[in-house]
Design a protein around this nucleic acid. Structure first.
Lengths: 134, 134
DNA sequence: CTGTATCCGTTCGGATACTG
DNA sequence: CAGTATCCGAACGGATACAG
């Protein structure tokens, strides 16, 4: 699990095993929803809990809570509680979180290129690309 | 699990949901051992199954097999069987796998910087950094 | 509105034995 | 040597109910 992996890296760090900078970075965003959350917060600046929930249709209450808690612990996002009634909790991205964006952008690019290479331009036959003008 | 995440992205692609280039990339190396395997193969060129096993002390036979199979399917590595007795199976990194290295390097850098920031220079008190010459 | 606790099916991962 | 199959305990993830 992404959780387990994160725990594992964190534990290794506590034990002085620190030969794992890349795993550490990976653990920051390897959760099933963390990339999307990060990008959304980066683009739009702030979201409340249920707004995020609506943004990520297939995420569960429990799982979203968990992802957000981990990201808060890792200081990728900030959790701000406004003590009104009803309660308001605002999530925003931190500078640390933003510092991950170049990596995430690189992942976008790689993914786009790779998917194009696989000719997964969906709903068109896989051979289309081979016979354009000719 | 990283497996599950990978399956999920793959399924989404098959269904034409392809708004997920970054998740796709993530799924390439999000497995617990894939980063290390990739780096090792990139540095040393080729390894046999049991050599990898020794390199990754805590990995299980079954899990390693699985990680290698997925990476082969994703065309990040190549599996070559030499039909001698006893059997020899060689794993090497592909150009596609190598094309991930810039991203992985960026992850190393980010992780190094972040760990330094956290003052996890292990086995030294967390305050050492604050009182050098003074 | 947010978040926690519980129950419970599903899936993961370790150990072991077996095949080619 | 390399990989598969099986068994089984552990962890995850969904649904629901409850609390602040």
């Amino acid at each position: 699990m992404t959780d387990a992996a994160r725990e594992d890296v964190l534990n290794r760090l506590e034990n002085g095993d620190y030969s794992c900078a890349k795993e550490f970075t990976l653990a920051m965003f390897a959760g099933k929803w963390k990339l999307i959350i990060l990008c959304q917060l980066n683009e739009h600046g702030a979201y409340r809990f249920n707004e995020l929930r609506r943004l990520l249709p297939k995420v569960t209450h429990k799982v979203l809570t968990n992802q957000l808690r981990e990201m808060t612990q890792d200081q990728l996002i900030t959790r701000t509680v406004e003590q009104e009634k009803p309660l308001k909790v605002i999530y925003t991205i931190t500078p640390l979180g933003q510092s991950l964006m170049p990596i995430i952008d690189a992942m976008c690019d790689w993914g786009d290129a790779r998917l194009a290479q696989l000719q997964v331009t969906p709903h068109f036959s896989a051979n289309e690309a081979a016979l354009p003008g000719a």
